[in-house]
Simulated assay, not measured.
Amino acid sequence: MAVKDPVPSRERVRRAALKLFATRGFHGTGIRDLAQEANLSSASLYHYMGTKEALLAELMRESLVSLLGSARAAVAGITDPRERLRVLVALHVTTHATQPDETRVVDNEVRSLSPESQQAVIRLRDSYETLWAEAIDDGVRSGIFHTDEPTVSRLALLEMCNGVARWYSPSGPLSLEQLSRHYATLALGALGASGSAEPAGKSP
């Protein structure tokens, strides 16, 4: 008697898409690839995913909604720009280290979407990056951060943190908490932060 797969078919499709989009790219992943990875027939695959692009857009929206919600909660009530940025960097690094497939897809596949599908994803991404921009701008206005190019600085810091998804390993020399704290220190140093903000508990 065959053992029934405990993972629902729709979730298998989602996991397969994340894995393949992250490793092969959206355009490098075919319907047969998805069906094989999800252990479904190509015909039944459409029942659980709609179009391939719709599946990509859904995965990206889910990931960004989760990240944005976590970031808003993490910085709520924090007024010191140094501490807000420290928390945002730690969250970003932690998310990219623990959810590499999701974050690779979000970071790399926006251009694979049609203009209409891009809009919702870009709005979410912009809302998230606004939290970073506000922390940096507040720090510059208050004389805590020193940069002539706050927008370029923000993009550079995000790109630096994004790279964690490509190489982080739990068996590395630093724990994830240590790594996130180190990245926060690098970010503050890049902005010429004056003074210091005591970390508010453990990294996210």
Rank of each mutant, 00 (worst) to 15 (best):
M1Y: 00
A2G: 03
K4A: 12
K4N: 02
D5F: 00
P8I: 08
S9W: 00
R10I: 12
E11S: 10
A16E: 09
F21M: 07
F21Y: 12
A22K: 02
T23M: 04
G28R: 09
G30R: 01
R32P: 02
R32A: 15
D33K: 02
A35Y: 04
A35P: 08
Q36R: 15
E37Y: 07
E37P: 04
E37M: 14
A38E: 07
N39I: 00
S42Q: 09
S42N: 11
S44Q: 09
S44D: 06
L45I: 12
L45G: 05
Y46F: 13
M49C: 14
M49A: 15
G50V: 06
T51C: 14
K52V: 03
E53C: 11
S63F: 04
L64G: 06
L64D: 07
G69S: 09
A73E: 06
A76L: 10
G77K: 13
G77A: 13
G77D: 05
T79L: 12
D80Q: 07
P81N: 11
R82W: 08
E83G: 01
E83P: 00
R84P: 03
R84L: 01
R84D: 02
R86W: 06
L88H: 12
A90W: 05
A90Y: 00
T94G: 10
T94M: 04
T98G: 04
P100H: 00
D101K: 11
D101G: 01
T103F: 08
T103C: 11
T103I: 03
R104H: 09
R104E: 12
V105A: 03
V106C: 10
N108H: 06
N108W: 02
S112D: 08
L113K: 09
L113D: 12
L113H: 06
L113V: 07
L113E: 14
S114R: 14
S114Q: 12
S114C: 12
E116S: 15
S117W: 02
S117C: 01
S117I: 01
R123H: 15
L124Q: 10
S127D: 08
S127A: 13
E129D: 10
T130H: 13
L131F: 11
W132V: 04
E134S: 14
E134I: 10
D138I: 04
G139I: 04
V140K: 01
V140I: 05
R141A: 09
S142M: 10
G143I: 05
H146G: 05
D148Y: 01
P150C: 15
R154Y: 00
L158E: 03
L158P: 04
L158K: 05
E159S: 15
N162F: 01
G163Y: 07
A165H: 05
R166Q: 14
W167Y: 15
Y168L: 02
Y168K: 08
S169A: 13
S169I: 00
P170V: 15
S171T: 14
G172K: 11
G172P: 06
P173Q: 11
S180C: 05
Y183D: 11
Y183G: 01
Y183Q: 15
Y183P: 03
T185L: 02
T185Q: 14
L188G: 07
A190C: 09
G192W: 01
A193C: 14
E198P: 02
A200M: 00
K202A: 15
S203N: 08
P204V: 12
P204S: 14
